[in-house]
Design a protein around this nucleic acid. Sequence first.
RNA 1: GGUCGCGUGGCCGAGUGGUUAGGCGCCGGUCUGCAAAACCGUGCACGGCGGUUCGAAUCCGUUCGCGACCUCCA
Length: 489
Amino acid sequence: MDKNLHIYNTLSRKKEVFEPINPPLVGMYVCGPTVYSDVHLGNCRTFISFDLIYRYLLHLGYKVRYVRNITDAGHLEGDRDEGDDKFAKKAKLEQLEPMEIVQKYTLGFHDVMNIFNTLSPSIEPTATGHISEQIEMVKEIIANGYAYEKNDTVYFDVEKYNIDFPYGQLTNRKLDDLLEGTRELDGQDEKKGRLDFALWIKAKPETLMQWPSPWGWGFPGWHIECSAMSSKYLGETFDIHGGGMDLQATHHTNEIAQSQACNNTSPVKYWLHTNMLTVNGVRMSKSAGNGFLPEELFTGNHPLLERGYSPMVVRFFMSQSHYRSTLDFSNEALQGAEKGFQKLIKAGETLQTLKAKSESSVNIEELKANCYKAMNDDFNSPILIAHLFEAVRIINLINDGKESINNTDLDNLKSLFNTFVFDVLGLKTDDTNESNDSGLTGDLIDMILNLRLDAKKNKDFATSDKIRDELTSKGVVIKDTKDGFEWEI
RNA sequence: GGUCGCGUGGCCGAGUGGUUAGGCGCCGGUCUGCAAAACCGUGCACGGCGGUUCGAAUCCGUUCGCGACCUCCA
């Protein structure tokens, strides 16, 4: 089954057969969040996408070491390796220690990941926990001649590196083209080249987070942590590196350069990039101010939202698009996803009640093969879901007595459904039956509806309709069943 | 300006040189006192213009529109 997995590699810009370096082991590194503010939905999409990938690799039987870092230092506000650290800035703003900021948003991030039912990574290393590894790496890069020190700050020499290695390979760009898009250095700049970036940055006296180094007190550049931590936990060359597409051009390009310059080997076999979440066609981002917080989506407390949607509906919604496509957010799309999700879950419940016959009129083997085919084609969850809805149709038809299924097929169907809906897509039944009060309301509604049932039995439809209308207008949805009723608020 | 990507039916979103994507919506049917819900079924597409081909929405060219990256962001 596993030799069929194809994944799209950003490095080659095509789909390749997935062959781990040391099967069945798989090393996967994903760039995690910078924990200086709440994660928004766009961030979540990336982590949910990689959760799907992680889950499928596990399902195929690979032993995956999944490393996802927490950036808690070194990430600067500006674009020129100067200015304030994001954490320090936030800390000053909220009058807290930088590590209090880190702690707060790390916990928040974990909460959100749990709510979305993502599996925890095997290792979740932090930048501040790996300062010495980063310093060692910078020393090595200097020793290899690809970095230089200037006034206690260390820069990576991009143009020198490019003589020996293709710096812009990940985005398929030539150095000259890259230089063209860069602004001129002004006279003050310490950098030799316009594309050079900081590996280690000299601290100012007031810098809140700083560490001693061979170049004096300072802090690491943003990119070096990922190079240091990925090679520490996954080795100098590992299988999969992932992250959002926005990281491709700068962060990942620099990461490759650092690792190559330090270890003299290409660090990653397969680069995977997830696409952006958009709102009205425009990328959702912190700086654009069009970000949705998960909480806002769940509660519906947002100007653009008509109402809230449950976490699993959101996860399902995201799974309905491919991870490399942009996904556009709208009320209508969300509502559609909600209906679809409920239909899928309901069919799963119906499936448990089906009775086997001696003959099968349905083809479960083919369905199963189709599901694997979809996932093996670069984790194509939208196609997988299309096939799962074929399963839904089959389940409902059997339930209606229009198709039949034998024991073996029924077991297969159950296992198929379980595997893909819950294990691979990572969906779960929503816990919607949270009791909002002591149950009194429910008892009262039951009582009223029992009175309505009596009216119906007496063919007093005027009364029964009146009760229904009034309850409906108060938000109680009534569904008559054969010999009673169901309701929900 | 440079690099790259996208444009699919009312909405979201897959995919392929000729055969149904799928979900939601709409419409029809079953069920129901009537509804709702549920289930079944049908129709509604491939930005414009050229070209290649027996045949293209799918390949090529061109044009229009949109977006991303090149600057912090998953």
